[in-house]
Design a protein around this nucleic acid. Structure first.
Length: 299
DNA sequence: GGCCAGGGGATTA
DNA sequence: TAATCCCATGGC
């Protein structure tokens, strides 16, 4: 168990803003998740008067924290500066940032991110999480038990590349099963070398490779670039973001390209952060609306 | 370039 | 019970 000082950090914002699917809230409010073949539990200690905020990590040590979890949680980035830049002269963004002030963009593994967002297409978050857990427990390496539960690593490229549609059928991925097998086989062709090299390449080059894979279009490719390859100017446009741009920015844009161009002009190099604040803000607003509506219906 | 199917499950009507 | 929706994409 180790303890680190953190700023601009909120577990709910980080793990519930749609960027990751393998972190779950425990009854005590802490979060447990598996990434890079390791499982940890994270807890944010309530700050005492004037004292800084501390993040408590169970299941790691000092060395592993520095090499694995500090970069994964993106703890070295100046989010206060990013938020200030984005909120300047943009009251809409300022409000969105207020709602998700503790968001951080995790640096996830490209392979897991690729398959996860393949599964995410035209799908809802609870079912995406369920599919990924099933995939891991069925085809991933078994890890040490943690908090009394079995844990599994995300399956390797080779494992998924070797699967048949029949073997994958039990996961109930629907038409996405074919995308996963074909993409895994394409990535496995060079032993995953090309995929591993993408973070070091330009965003355009990486985007071209990713969209060449079966089942990867512009939205999924941009999510992979943003969540696992540090291409922070990418602005993935999905139904929620489209909704946000229409309702908040009154952008009656049918073309995804138009929304991307708007984002590039208004948010620039911080487009990806802006997208996450907007996505989280819209989902929170939507939850409240649903509650209000159902309340009215009861009366 | 526009349109629609493809799977399954949760939620809504 | 039926309709609709879901962090899109492929293929016509």
């Amino acid at each position: 168990m180790i303890r680190k000082e953190v700023k601009d950090f909120c577990l709910r914002h980080v793990f519930d803003c749609g960027q990751c699917f393998r972190w779950n809230q425990e009854e005590d409010g802490s979060y447990t998740g598996t990434a890079m073949g390791r499982t940890v539990n994270l807890r944010l200690l309530p700050p005492e008067n004037g004292s800084p905020q501390y993040l408590e990590i169970e299941g790691t040590d000092e060395t592993e924290f520095e090499t694995v979890w500090r970069p994964y949680l993106d703890l070295d980035r100046d989010y206060a500066g990013i938020k200030q830049t984005l909120a300047k002269e943009d009251p809409i963004m300022a409000e969105a940032i207020l709602a998700g002030s503790g968001i951080r963009l995790l640096r996830q593994e490209p392979w897991e991110t690729l398959i996860s967002f393949l599964i995410s297409q035209n799908n809802n978050i609870p079912r995406i999480k369920k599919c990924i857990e099933m995939l891991s427990s069925r085809f991933g390496e078994e890890l040490p038990e943690f908090r009394g539960a079995k844990r599994f690593a995300f399956p390797t490229v080779e494992t998924l590349a070797a699967l048949t549609p029949e073997a994958l059928a039990e996961i109930r991925l629907g038409y996405r099963a074919r995308y996963i097998i074909e993409t895994a086989r394409a990535v496995a062709q060079d032993g995953g070398q090309m995929l591993r090299s993408l973070p070091g390449r330009s965003a355009e080059e990486a985007y071209a490779y990713l969209t060449g894979l079966c089942g990867v279009g512009p939205k999924v490719a941009n999510c992979i670039l943003l969540f696992s390859m540090e291409k922070y100017d990418r602005f993935p446009v999905d139904v929620w973001v489209r909704r946000v741009m229409e309702e908040l920015y009154h952008l009656e844009e049918k073309e995804t390209g138009g929304i991307e161009a708007f984002a590039a002009e208004h948010f620039g190099e911080y487009g990806g952060f802006a997208q996450q604040y907007l996505f989280y803000y819209m989902r929170e607003k939507n939850k409240k609306n649903v509650l209000t509506l159902s309340g009215k219906r009861v009366q």
